[in-house]
């Protein structure tokens, strides 16, 4: 097991494209949260500062980070597609790895990248949160921290989807194009043929709903996300945003899809010639 992890580490850190994409991911996230924090919106009663305060920041930053999950999925597709392009999956089996070891290596990589991404969100959440929160209490700080873990599951789920496509098509470019098409066009269009309540169960919908768009109007008007506050501006209650599934159900479904995608990838790896 140790040798599999060490090998994945050797492969990624010597690979320029990996370092560039990770750096890009980090910088883009930082720039977005930095630039947004400097926005000066002068609407009476509204302030973007509230987004950067605990506990709202635990909702806001994972949502922003979720925009860049695409980069992480591309990274996994690239690293898996390379194994086919260079025929190194084949060589590893010849040298003595089992096909399950091939899968294990890539699952480790997915988890490692998701941990990195979660730690990045945690780091910036702490930095910005402590700067922007005035009346800091332990209760406020801890409230909604679970969203970080939900974000972790989301990143894993996105990358698992990319991993399955890379294993399925064994071609990096094709897998990336199909991942983007499926996420942005194919599934959204397909969902339209189903009733609204059924649409919530599609994989990309489930995964993206793990970190839903924060209720900006409600938060920036000073409401600290107290669901009992009847004076808040709640877009879902107003019918502007669709109702989502409960978080626990979304989480379970996302974990189920992740297991399904990795299971399918395992089946393909086991059955097909390398």
């Amino acid at each position: 097991m140790k040798s599999i992890i060490l090998n994945e580490y050797t492969k990624i850190w010597s690979y320029m494209a990996f370092r560039v994409i990770i750096l890009l991911h980090f910088i883009l996230f930082f720039l977005v949260v930095l630039v947004t924090s400097r926005l000066d919106i002068t609407i009476p009663g509204f302030s973007t500062d509230y987004l950067y305060q605990f506990p709202n920041i635990w909702e806001f930053f994972p949502w922003v980070a979720s925009w860049f999950n695409l980069l992480l999925a591309i990274l996994i597709i690239l690293m898996t597609g390379n194994e086919y392009t260079f025929r190194t999956f084949r060589q590893h089996v010849i040298d003595g790895l089992s096909r399950f070891d091939l899968l294990t290596g890539k699952v480790f990589l997915i988890i490692a990248i998701a941990v990195y991404s979660m730690l990045m969100v945690l780091l910036f959440s702490l930095l910005f949160g402590f700067v922007f929160t005035r009346d800091m209490t332990a209760g406020l700080f801890v409230k909604k921290t679970y969203i970080l873990l939900v974000y972790f599951v989301q990143a894993v789920a996105y990358m698992s989807t990319g991993f399955l496509l890379a294993i399925l098509f064994r071609n990096t470019a094709l897998a990336i194009v199909l991942f983007i098409l499926y996420r942005l066009i194919i599934e959204p269009v397909f969902r339209l043929f189903f009733p609204p309540e059924a649409r919530l169960y599609f994989p990309m919908k489930v995964i993206s709903n793990l970190t839903p768009m924060p209720e900006f109007l409600s938060i920036s008007s000073g409401n600290k996300a107290d669901p009992g506050n009847v004076d808040t501006l709640n877009l879902r209650e107003m019918g502007i945003l669709a109702e989502d599934l409960p978080v626990y159900l979304n989480l379970l479904l996302a974990l189920g899809y992740t297991a399904l995608f990795i299971g399918l990838a395992w089946l393909l790896l086991r059955r097909r010639n390398l």
Binding site: S14, N82, F86, T88, Q91
Partner: peptide
């Protein structure tokens, strides 16, 4: 068949 290695390593 052919040697299979990581070209960037």
């Amino acid at each position: 068949e052919v040697p299979n290695f990581y070209p960037y390593l």
